[in-house]
Structure formats: C-alpha cells, structure tokens
C-alpha cells in the first residue's frame, strides 16, 4: 500500500532509510524544521538549514521516487532566544516561494513558557501574512496536555485563522479530541517510549474515526523508526480494517491537507496499472 509520512526529519537519517521507505510503499514525506540537538547561534545557521531542507533533501528523496516537502520555522526549544527567533522569522520569507515548501512548522510549545508563546504567536502572524498552512508541534510527556490547550487557546483567539489550515501534531488519547472538536487536522506520532505506539494509534482511530487524522514516524536523530507508518498499516490490517479505511489515514488525508497549500502541484494521475492493482481480481467462472 502506498503511504505518506507527513513528519520525518530525513536530515538526521541515512540514505538507506529512503531506500527502505520506498520499498515499504512511501511515495512522499514532509519534513518540518526542528531542533538540531543543539541551539543554533545565528540566522545564517538557519538559512543554511533551510537550504538543506529545500534543496538537498528533495534531490536525495527523488533518487527513490519519494516526493519531499518541508516546513520552515525556528523550533520551540530555541524560542527562549527571542531575538534570534525574530531574526529567523524575518528571514523565512526568502524561502516561501520554493515549490516544495508547504508552510510554517513545526511551531509550538516545549516547556510552555512565556517566550515560547510569544514566538509561537509571531510565527502564526507570519503564516497569516503570507497565507501559509501551519504545522504544530505539541509538547512532550507531562507538558503535552497543558501545552496543547494553550496552543488551541492562541489559535482560537485569532480571527484570521481557519482551523482546517492547521495541523496539530503529536496528539494522544488526552489531546486528540481537543484538536478535532475545534476543527483542526491532527496527527499521531509513532515514536518509541515518549509518544504513541502503532497499536495505541489504531485504538485512537477506532475511537475518533478517520476524518482529519493521520500518522507519522517523526523519525529523527533519536531512537525512532522511519518505517513506523507501515507498522501501523500492518496493525490496522491485523484488526481487519478495510484497505480503503487504511488508505484514507495514511494517504488520502495527508494529501487533502497539503493540497490547501497555494504552491501545491498536483501529482501525475495514477496509471491504469496502479489503479488495477487496488481493485480485487474478478473471479473466474
């Protein structure tokens, strides 16, 4: 089954991962800007990072017929440096006309501080000014519930914002309904120890349905699995869910959200051969 991984940090992964993801059916990924494992010291450091995201990774992915898209921002972990954050936010428009940039992300909160909230709001202001989609990181572990509620508070007070153009990521059992009930898209992250397992993600889908929800690996420089989405596909199959239901979560939903980007270029139509593969064979008389 074809799938999209809507959140993975390929800058931290080896080329062999692209190879294995392609074998597993991955046709596209989106890569949000994130924390590099250390706090960067300058706007130029981010400019180089954004060049990597918009120029290098699309070429690396293309070797395996995987389409690569990116999101730009300064991550919440670096938002305590408000001056640097403002410099990066001011520089981001240099990259917003790149064809593979989908919007602003992954912005959000980390420890739910005042500076993080300020920088989050300024990213939202940027997205509204340029009519960009938004991808949101919600905090980890004990900070997640509080941070998700704070993020939704900020989004709901902004009358410019259309919730259907915002994707709230890393939702779990206690936050998923807050995202969906307020009209946002959401994503579950299949990541060892600190986030969701594929099994729990399928439980969540069974509880909230398949509308406006997707799943990603968030594979990065930590112990993580770039094939986590295919793991979830297998779990859904194990429980007897129809291929059409699985496909909605891992392919149709991400595409529906991304298609709202003004720069989106429609993919070539599937060939008749690919379509035929998905149809059940007719029984012989």
């Amino acid at each position: 089954m074809y799938y999209i991984d809507p959140h993975i940090h390929m800058i931290s992964r080896v080329t062999d991962d692209y190879h294995r993801m392609a074998y597993a059916g991955c046709v596209a990924i989106t890569e949000p800007a994130f924390w590099a494992g250390f706090d960067r010291g300058s706007v130029d450091g981010f400019r180089d990072y954004f060049r990597h995201l918009t120029e290098v990774e699309p070429k690396r992915a293309a070797q395996f017929n995987i389409r690569h898209y990116s999101w730009l921002c300064i991550n919440a972990k670096e938002a305590e440096n408000v001056e640097l954050s403002r410099g990066v936010i001011q520089m981001i428009p240099e990259f917003l006309n790149k064809p593979n940039v989908l919007g602003i992300g992954e912005i959000g909160l980390n420890k739910n501080t005042k500076n993080e909230a300020t920088v989050f709001q300024e990213h939202v202001d940027l997205a509204m000014k340029y009519h960009e989609l938004i991808l949101i990181h919600t905090p980890h572990l004990e900070d997640k519930y509080k941070g998700t509620r704070m993020i939704i508070d900020m989004l709901k007070q902004d009358r410019r914002l259309k919730p259907e153009r915002v994707l709230i990521d890393h939702v779990e059992e206690h936050t998923v309904r807050h995202a969906l009930d307020n009209g946002f898209w959401c994503a579950m992250t299949l990541y060892p120890t600190t986030k969701c397992t594929p099994q729990r993600a399928v439980d969540i889908i069974e509880m909230v349905g398949t509308d406006c929800i997707m799943a990603n690996s968030a594979g990065d420089w930590g112990k993580s699995d770039p094939l986590a989405v295919p793991e979830m596909i297998q779990e859904m199959k194990r429980r007897g869910h129809a291929d059409s239901v699985i496909r909605k979560v891992v392919y149709d939903n991400p595409l529906a959200f991304f298609r709202q980007c003004a720069r989106w270029q429609e993919w070539p139509a599937e060939t008749e051969v690919e379509k035929a593969k998905r149809k059940p064979a007719k029984a012989h008389a």
């Binding site: 005042k114 004990e142 206690h174």
Partner: peptide, 19 residues
C-alpha cells in the same frame, strides 16, 4: 495520560495576535 499531565489554567496570559 491525565495522571501524568500538568494542570492547565484557562486564564493564562496569552500573547495577542498582531492584525
């Protein structure tokens, strides 16, 4: 999940959007 979560205060001091 709620047992392992910090409390949320709906009256927190939100930054304002710049229209």
């Amino acid at each position: 999940q709620q047992i392992f979560s910090l409390d949320y205060d709906p009256g927190w001091d939100k930054p304002k959007p710049r229209y």
